[in-house]
Amino acid sequence: MELTIEVVVFAVFAIITLAGALGVVLARNLFRAALLLLVSLFGVAGLFVLLAAPFLAAVQVLLYMGGIAILIIFGVMLTRGMVQARQVMNSQWDLAAVIALVTFVILMIVIVQVAQGEGAPLPSLPRGDVAADSIAQLGAALVDPAQYVLPFEVASVLLAGALIGAVYIAREDEAE
């Protein structure tokens, strides 16, 4: 592989992502774990930019870093006594390790297949410029009856359901 600037930047973001993720798992302090999750998410945003998908990078920052991470921190604060974990491993670590390993193997098989193009489920994507109006194309595709309008509306129902359900659960907790 040629050592271009792109490769170096990719390596930097990949390391940020992995180091952040590792930190989340190893941190004993839940708040710090949440912050390290942010680092990891930021790395992913960087990777999106490298993939010429700036809209997804913005989604990553706005939604995951500015929304879900805050939600997690609020969640941490709600759980009394959970802030300082006494041990890094919990009782189900062996099961978790097996699941993680299996997921990793499946992902690797898929990635290798796609990359080598042999029996690839996806056509190999052309390397080159992404259309300047890709965001507008995305917007048009979302509400196009021939494309994604049904999943789009279903997503809306899902969001509505998730919201009401989550609020119900949270308020039940409060009543106890």
Partner: peptide, 25 residues
Amino acid sequence: YYIFALVFVIFDVEMLFLFPWAVAY
């Protein structure tokens, strides 16, 4: 606090769906 954060996340997702639509409108 948690409930408001939850409501916010849902609306955040909604707004992010709206943006591409608004650009192409």
